[in-house]
Amino acid sequence: MKVTFYLVRHGQTYFNRYNKLQGWSNSPLTENGLSDARKVGEKLSGVRFEAAYSSDTSRAMQTAKIILDKNTTDFQPELSCLANFREEFYGSYEGSNMDIAWLNAGAPYGLKSYAEIVDDYGVASTKDFLKAADPWHDAENNDEYWARLDEGFTKLLEDPNVKDGAKVLLISHGNTLLSLADRYGNNKISLHARPKNGSVSKLVYEDRQYHFISFDDKEIN
């Protein structure tokens, strides 16, 4: 069985503009964000999707609906929204300035940024460190995050519309795309910066294995 996922990062939101962490919290798409969605919708207008999924956040659902409205093929799937595909939950750091949040997470280890944590300890540790720094410890650690996301992919692959050769639209989030790239990118993808809003990455599921063939609109060799 082979399935190709078209992973699209949602359009720019106000929290993106203001450099705030935005996991389960939400903010509206900006005018640039609406433009992001329209542009990627035009780019993918000729792709026949057998299924379409997003998280249940308004930024992801709105992006998905704009893309689907621009599709010109002979089949229009209904959008399925699952909480499993939400962005990482940042606990009490939701809505906080990103740079300050990652400084707090890395400070006990002598690190000052998300990139430094990734370089010294890996992407998984960014989640564990932020949960430890959260006074309420509500933020998701790595195991909690992947249990939720893996369940989402299991549900998706059980969709009767997702058969061999299917193409699936999946509206995703910045840190989730980095997490997927860390797990399935075969060390070929930079993990320092989130992909652009409205960018397209392609993830293939084949023979029960996942691998990226492009990321952030760039082909992977």
Rank of each mutant, 00 (worst) to 15 (best):
W146P: 01
I171N: 04
W102I: 05
A132L: 14
E151L: 13
G95I: 08
L170G: 02
E158L: 12
K167W: 00
D143S: 14
Y184T: 11
G95D: 08
H192K: 15
S113D: 03
F85H: 04
G174H: 03
R86A: 11
T126K: 07
G198K: 02
Y114V: 00
G174N: 03
K65N: 14
E116V: 05
P77Y: 08
L82G: 02
A124S: 15
S96F: 15
L130E: 09
D134Y: 04
Y53C: 04
L157I: 05
N71M: 09
K167D: 04
S80D: 08
K188M: 11
M61E: 15
E87K: 05
L170P: 04
P108Y: 13
D74M: 05
Y184W: 11
A193M: 08
N97T: 04
E140I: 05
L191V: 09
L157E: 06
I100Y: 10
G91K: 06
G95L: 03
I171T: 12
M61G: 10
S172N: 08
N186E: 15
A52D: 12
S96K: 10
G110M: 08
A107Q: 14
M61L: 11
G110R: 09
P108V: 13
L191N: 09
G152Q: 08
S92V: 01
E78C: 02
H137F: 10
T73Y: 07
L130C: 01
Y93L: 08
L79I: 09
L191A: 11
D99F: 07
L79P: 06
S172F: 02
S125H: 05
A52M: 13
S113K: 07
N97V: 10
I171D: 01
E151Q: 14
T72V: 15
S55D: 07
E87G: 07
S172T: 15
F153S: 01
R148W: 04
F153I: 10
E158W: 00
Q76I: 14
A147V: 05
D74Y: 06
T63W: 10
A64I: 10
Q76E: 12
A83Q: 11
E140Q: 14
I66L: 10
S190P: 01
F85R: 07
S80V: 15
M61T: 14
A52R: 12
R194M: 12
A64T: 12
V162L: 10
R59A: 13
N187F: 01
E116D: 13
S55F: 01
Y114Q: 08
F75I: 04
D119F: 03
L156Q: 02
K65Q: 15
I67D: 11
K112L: 09
C81G: 02
S199C: 14
N97K: 10
R194S: 11
I100C: 00
A132K: 15
W146E: 06
S199G: 07
G91M: 10
Q62I: 14
A193T: 14
R183Y: 03
Q62A: 05
R86L: 03
G110L: 06
L169E: 11
